[in-house]
């Protein structure tokens, strides 16, 4: 391939990033940092799409457009999530996810 880098490297990089995001999602308490972890996860998926497009189907656009759409979705998701977070903050005066546990038994 023109870049001289095997496809697997991209995939490994993306999956490491993905699971780092998951780790963040599971451990962080602040809702905003959780949101950032989600952004990491989305980003890693994006890398995968583009790498596959480049290496396996270079004559097509699908991967790129998926990436594009994911970026748009991420933007929308971030906007809504932050609106929700601000509302939660107003309601509970905290954005600690462990304190927001009203939805139980």
């Amino acid at each position: 391939m023109n870049t001289g880098i095997p496809l697997e490297y991209f995939l490994i990089l993306a999956s490491v990033m993905f699971f780092v995001g998951i780790y963040g999602f599971l451990t962080r308490r602040n809702l905003i940092t959780i949101l950032m972890s989600v952004e990491l996860v989305l980003n890693s998926v994006n890398i995968n799409f583009l790498a596959f497009n480049k290496y396996l189907f270079p004559d097509q656009f699908q991967g790129q457009f998926f990436g594009l759409i994911i970026i748009a979705v991420a933007a929308a998701e971030a906007a809504v999530a932050i609106a929700i977070i601000i509302n939660i903050y107003r309601h509970f005066t905290t954005i600690n996810v462990e304190d927001v546990d009203q939805m139980k038994f």
Partner: peptide
């Protein structure tokens, strides 16, 4: 078993993952 239904988002996420 209602203990599982803790309202803790991250516990749910952990189980999911």
């Amino acid at each position: 078993i209602r203990g599982f239904q803790s309202g803790q988002l991250q516990k749910y996420a952990f189980v999911f993952v």
